[in-house]
Design a protein around this nucleic acid. Structure first.
Lengths: 297, 297
DNA sequence: CTAATTGATAACCCATAGTTATTAAGTGTG
DNA sequence: CACACTTAATAACTATGGGTTATCAATTAG
């Protein structure tokens, strides 16, 4: 009767909603099954809404339960972030920003940002994680990440995206490849080679752009290998397994027996963008974004 | 110890944060003061963060407490909205949309929307509230309102705005005013009259637009009265206390002894826009916005 | 000084979360 | 169909800890 909804109910509800099995959920929560049953029942009474359908050995969510699940996930995650921020504030820090990035952002943009952050906002903690374009965007939507460095043109509704670094492309050739830089005119000369590219699902935009570079030069490349790490690509090139086209800045920081020819005369550019959720409540994020966008102009 | 944060703590914390006085807060919560003291202390232990400073008869929030207050307010409000939505889903309804509006939106746009909603989504409940531009925008930012009908050009970051109805302006004159419609050429003829306008802080854009209409006609109007209700303005005009310039559609629905002359030949238009929060999680809102934006094109 | 605030502490009580034991109902096998 | 073996719900009990009252220490006001 005069009961009150509590966070405990939320955790119990989520466990059942995930397992769709009272005993298993109770085990996961380290409580007994009847206790769990009663709490869920109580929750339904408090909310005056049926959340689960128990029928013939099967537990399933009602429409309302489905909706509640996503909202509770949102609230509990928000709470976790808040707790973390609280500790940062207590320690005299301003907050934490969780940053996702593609490996290629580590060459220029991220070190720059970190140095400027340390200078202007020494209190802001950073938490870096290397992820694919899609993984970053999903994490940002779910508030698991505050911002991401991606190579993509379109993002879901509710996300903002701004270019922060524009790069030419370069061809990567084995060190002893019989073509001198001064003899190089355009990519068409490499039409017969095998190409090694970043995997399409890792960065669809990159993939399409490289294809368009080749098409502009009048051929369709034979793609022999796909990889997600620059190092792997360079290694393959070094071993004469093919050639590659990559964003120019990626060449720095590797010691490989390969040579680079920058494609200055084509219109395509590799654009690295920063992406964040419009309504992210993390105040430290705003400072980061401002630093990034002002420095690049 | 192995204590756990609960919603109860949130409500207690908010009461103390608002009253800044344990006894008064305890009274408001209908519990005893020692109980409240203990719960707050426990909360600080769980979070490992001091939330209040108790010093010499005065209770005040720490920086962390200040931050937590705003986050808890956000979470509890979100929870209330979720509960309401749950009941709508249970009742076979799709959800509830809380709509704010300026009085002038009630003539055309809102009745239209409500009829279409009833037709296409009979399950969506609406909750209408007449508010000023600013009050609406603040409420939308704080998730107290899902959408608003405003006359303004700029909105804070995170809000979307789209025009839904464009209107000419009309001059409002007393019924017996010695100027026939066919004699009317431009507003300049009314340069010597007193003007009655909507209050500037009620709708800054309207105010500026009317000023620009007069300036284009080569004079600066003498503003004698400001009001927030169309009815009041008409009443003042009826009693020869001045003349007005209003969005044309406002004239419908009133029985007043005034006449209207539409200003068809000036470029200014009164634009009514719909405004909503980009990341609003209310699924019913999307349907509303889609209905609105499709119908107006 | 005394009186009247304030929030914190201590000791107690009882509501209720969580327990164990059991039941009812469903599923599947031979 | 009887059988074992699930499942979640129910009943009765236990004990944690939220809320209570009584009191204290500290500050402020007169």
């Amino acid at each position: 009767m005069g009961y009150q909804l509590e966070l405990r109910h939320f955790n119990y509800f989520l466990a059942v909603a995930e397992e769709l099995h009272y005993r298993k959920a109770a085990e996961k929560l380290c409580i007994s099954q009847p206790g769990l049953s009663r709490q869920i029942k109580q929750m339904e009474e408090i909310l005056e809404v049926k959340l689960f359908v128990r029928t013939k050995k099967k537990v399933s969510l009602t429409a309302a339960g489905e909706y509640l699940k996503s909202e509770i996930e949102f609230i509990l995650n928000h709470l976790e972030v808040t707790k973390k921020q609280l500790r940062h504030i207590r320690d005299g820090n301003f907050g934490e920003v969780r940053i996702g990035f593609l490996g290629s952002a580590m060459q220029e943009v991220i070190p720059d940002l970190l140095i400027k952050l340390k200078d202007k906002f020494p209190g802001i903690q950073t938490n870096l994680e290397e992820l694919s374009n899609n993984a970053q965007i999903n994490a940002i939507v779910k508030d698991k990440l505050d911002m991401g460095f991606v190579r993509t043109a379109r993002v879901p509704e509710g996300l903002n995206i701004q270019p922060v670094y524009t790069d030419t492309f370069s061809v990567v050739l084995p060190e002893l490849y019989p073509l001198l830089t001064r003899e190089f005119r355009d990519v068409g000369q490499l039409a017969e080679e095998n190409f090694i590219l970043f995997a399409q699902d890792y960065s669809p935009l990159y993939f399409d752009t490289v294809m368009s570079i080749c098409e502009d030069a009048g051929f369709t490349p034979k793609v022999s290998h796909k990889s997600v790490h620059a190092q792997t690509i360079f290694k393959l090139v070094e071993n004469n397994l093919g050639i590659a086209i990559i964003p120019t800045s990626l060449q720095y920081g590797f010691q490989m027996k390969v040579k680079f020819i920058e494609l200055k005369n084509i219109p395509q550019r590799a654009v690295l963008s920063v992406c964040w959720k419009e309504d992210n409540r993390n105040p430290a994020l705003r400072h980061c974004i401002n630093l990034l966008l002002n420095q690049s102009r």
